[in-house]
C-alpha cells in the first residue's frame, strides 16, 4: 500500500476514534456516551479493514494469491471479535443506563446533578431480573 494512502487511512480512522472519545467525555446523556463508544469502535474497525485490505492478485501471508478483492483473515477475525465486544459493551451499558433511570429518574447526568427533574419514588427493585 502506498505511503500516502496509509496516512489517509490513519487520519480517517483517528478522526472517527477521537470524535468518539470527545463524545464520551463531553456528552451528559448516558445514551449519547454509549453512542460515543460505538463511534470509537467504528474508527478502530475501519482501520482494521483498511489495514487488512488486499487487491485481487496480491499474495497473502500464507503464500496463496487473493482471488478477489478481500480482507486478510486476521483482520476479519479482529473485526468480528471487535463487533461482538462492542455490542456486548453497549448491551451492558444500556442495562446499566436503564437501572440508572429507574433509580435516579433520568439518564442525563446534568439533570441528575442539578435536580431539574424530580426523581420519582423508587419502583420495586428486581422488577424484571430474576423472574425465573
Amino acid at each position: 500500500m502506498s505511503q500516502a494512502l496509509s496516512y489517509f487511512n490513519l487520519t480517517v480512522a483517528f478522526t472517527v476514534f477521537i470524535a468518539g472519545v470527545y463524545m464520551v467525555a463531553t456528552e451528559h446523556n448516558l445514551l449519547r456516551k454509549l453512542m460515543g463508544i460505538n463511534l470509537c469502535g467504528a474508527g478502530v474497525l475501519l482501520l482494521a479493514i483498511l489495514t487488512g485490505f488486499v487487491r485481487r492478485g496480491q499474495q497473502l501471508a500464507d503464500g496463496t494469491v487473493a482471488g478477489t478483492n478481500t480482507v486478510v483473515p486476521a483482520m476479519q477475525w479482529l473485526a468480528v471479535a471487535g463487533i461482538v465486544a462492542i455490542t456486548a459493551i453497549t448491551a451492558v451499558g444500556l442495562a446499566l443506563a436503564r437501572s440508572h433511570k429507574r433509580v435516579f429518574g433520568t439518564m442525563d447526568l446534568d439533570e441528575k446533578r442539578n435536580g431539574v427533574k424530580q426523581a420519582p419514588p423508587q419502583s420495586t427493585p428486581n422488577a424484571t431480573e430474576d423472574r425465573r
Partner: peptide
C-alpha cells in the same frame, strides 16, 4: 468504570491493529 474501561479497551485494540499493520 464501563466508559473508562471501554475507551481504554478500544485504544488497546487500535494499538493491536496498528501493530498488525
Amino acid at each position: 468504570y464501563l466508559f473508562m474501561g471501554a475507551l481504554s479497551s478500544l485504544a488497546i485494540l487500535l494499538g493491536v491493529v496498528l501493530l498488525y499493520g
